[in-house]
Design a protein around this nucleic acid. Structure first.
Length: 504
RNA sequence: GGGCCGCUAGCUCAACUGGCAGAGCAGCUGACUCUUAAUCAGCAGGUUACAGGUUCGAUUCCUGUGCGGCUCACCA
């Protein structure tokens, strides 16, 4: 407790006290504004277009003081709200007494204030308000980051994201775009007759993907539950239920490593479309990403690192097998089991985990040799069935499935397949998968019998899709770390906090 | 979890080979009637992440810890 108050600048506390003593509430309940700063600036432009009309227009705006330039009898303040900013021109002869008092003694950069007065433009052309009344709406007790360089300490930017948003316009822009991207995706899918649904986050068994889940406990029923690692199995139940086109945009949780491309919780889009297959889904995805990019950025070409990436369809389509042959020099068809493939990889000098099954070995080849080269949007097609327990076999091929993964900027951004809807085949695949997990010493997941029961009622032929939204946002905003597109990325607890907790 | 790098005032950064810890912004006092990174004069602000060690002397060298970044491992 004491440490918290100690961190507040003494002078700011004095100002707070002085305001209270003068009968001014430093945290009043409300302030009625007439315009946002953006609207106010637009209004000035309008007045200028119609010089014949009324010239004196008064507005009430509110926001955070971002800079303060006192000049004798005059002072200039920059006021920012969520829409933009406007300059406040405070003249001793115009501003009322309370406002003058506040401006002179107790106003700090960072304070939230309300201001009212006449709109005008200064000699230098800056859109401004000649302030008559200036009131404190929320006293700021902590100094803002440096006005010119902003906040660059990455740790602080993540831990105190609000400061990042105040100080760095680029950060603000990323999250505005993130919001627009998600809105655009919803629009795209809604227009195509998809309905948005919500399925359980807490699940009795974490299915639909192969990843370590987070475990939690439900006291009321005395059972362990898992945070979902995918949306898949519940969405397919809805296809069984007769919703022919469904999607969910939701948070999923994977208890795995962190990296610039992985956060333990991240946002996934999954969609399922009855009477469609992976080819239909492929066309939909490339069109969706291109459309979203155009809608949000006004272009279908983005700069990512050193490269310009074009989302214009059609994206390149490459056989997964062929891509690994080209990049790694290995044809996995020649190695029908994990042991022989592992031996081949060891012979190449790769450090190979002896626990990995064939599917995971192939995935390792893919991510090490192929993925980094997939800068332009590319579909890799037809994965081995070993690594695709929920996908339908490719007709005429016992080993491959109708599946694609989409890559761009050297990252996997989507995964899709023609969904397996044969309940017997699905049960067989689950059992295989369980064996693999047991061999790798992972948390064993019960087979989702309820899902298999649903399939037994009959699921129509269906094309399913999963898109990593955070990675898509990375691509569209040119960010190379996933933490830069997640508002509050997961971080370790600061040792200072631990100390503080112990003292308290 | 491994490797490499970083941590100095509220913020952005300096400090040579180990020798008095410094600047800009923010803050405070004052000047200034159209500034916009306002300007000018002055003041204050530090457990150099933390704990040890070497040394006459450590921000600097060594060891450990914490946190972060990058990277490898892990990750359908």
């Amino acid at each position: 407790m004491a440490s918290r108050a100690d961190s507040i600048n003494k002078q700011r506390l004095e100002k707070l006290e002085r305001l209270r003593e003068a009968g001014c509430n430093p945290y009043p309940h409300r302030y009625q504004r007439s315009h946002t700063t953006e609207q106010a600036v637009a209004l000035i432009e309008e007045i200028e277009k119609n010089p014949a009309e009324e010239k004196v227009i008064e507005v009430r705006v509110a926001g955070r003081i971002m800079s303060h330039r006192p000049m004798g009898k005059v002072a200039f303040l920059d006021l920012r709200d969520g829409s933009g900013k406007i300059q406040l021109y405070c003249h001793r002869n115009v501003l009322n007494e309370d406002g003058l008092e506040l401006l002179k003694k107790d106003l700090d950069i960072g304070d939230i204030v309300g201001a009212s007065g006449r709109l005008f433009r200064t000699r230098t052309g800056e859109a401004s308000i000649e302030v008559k009344e200036l009131v404190m709406l929320a006293k700021s007790l902590q100094p803002l980051p440096e006005k010119w360089h902003g906040l660059s300490d990455i740790d602080t930017r993540y831990r105190q994201r609000y400061l990042d948003l105040i100080a760095n316009n680029e950060a603000r822009d990323i999250f505005l775009k993130r919001s627009l991207i998600i809105t655009a995706i919803r629009q795209f899918l809604n227009q195509r007759g998809f309905i948005e649904v919500e399925t359980p986050v807490l699940q009795p068994s974490a299915g639909g993907a192969l990843a370590q889940p987070f475990i939690t406990h439900q006291h009321a029923l005395g059972r362990d539950l898992y945070l979902r690692i995918a949306l898949e199995l519940y969405l397919k139940r809805l296809i069984v239920g007769g919703f022919d086109r469904v999607y969910e945009l939701g948070r999923i949780f994977r208890n795995e490593g962190l990296s610039t491309k992985h956060n333990p919780e991240f946002t996934m889009l999954e969609s399922y479309q009855a009477y469609a297959d992976y080819n239909d889904v492929m066309r939909m995805l490339e069109e969706m990403v291109c459309r979203v990019s155009q809608q949000v950025l006004g272009t279908d070409t983005v700069k990512f690192g050193e490269n310009d990436i074009s989302f214009k369809p059609p994206w390149q389509r490459v056989e997964l097998r062929q891509s690994i042959i080209e990049r790694a020099g290995i044809d996995f068809e020649e190695y029908p089991d994990a042991d022989s493939l592992r031996a081949r990889m060891l012979a190449m000098g790769m450090a190979v985990d002896p626990e990995k099954d064939r599917g995971r070995l192939i995935d390792e080849l893919l991510s090490n040799f192929v993925e980094p080269h997939l800068v332009q949007p590319t579909f890799l097609l037809h994965h081995p069935v070993d690594m695709s327990p929920l996908a339908k076999l490719k007709p005429g091929d016992e080993h491959l499935v109708e599946r694609f993964e989409a890559f761009a900027g050297g990252m996997e951004i989507a995964n899709a397949f023609t969904e397996l809807n044969d309940p017997f085949e699905q049960r067989k695949r689950f059992i295989e998968q369980q064996k693999g997990r047991r061999a790798e010493g992972e948390i064993e997941q019960a087979i989702d019998e309820d899902f298999l029961l649903a399939l037994e009622y009959g699921m129509p032929p269906t094309g399913g899709l999963g898109v990593g939204i955070d990675r898509l946002v990375m691509l569209l905003t040119g960010q190379t770390s996933i933490r830069q597109v997640i508002l509050f990325p997961q971080l370790k607890e600061k040792s200072i906090d631990k100390k503080g907790a112990q003292e308290a």
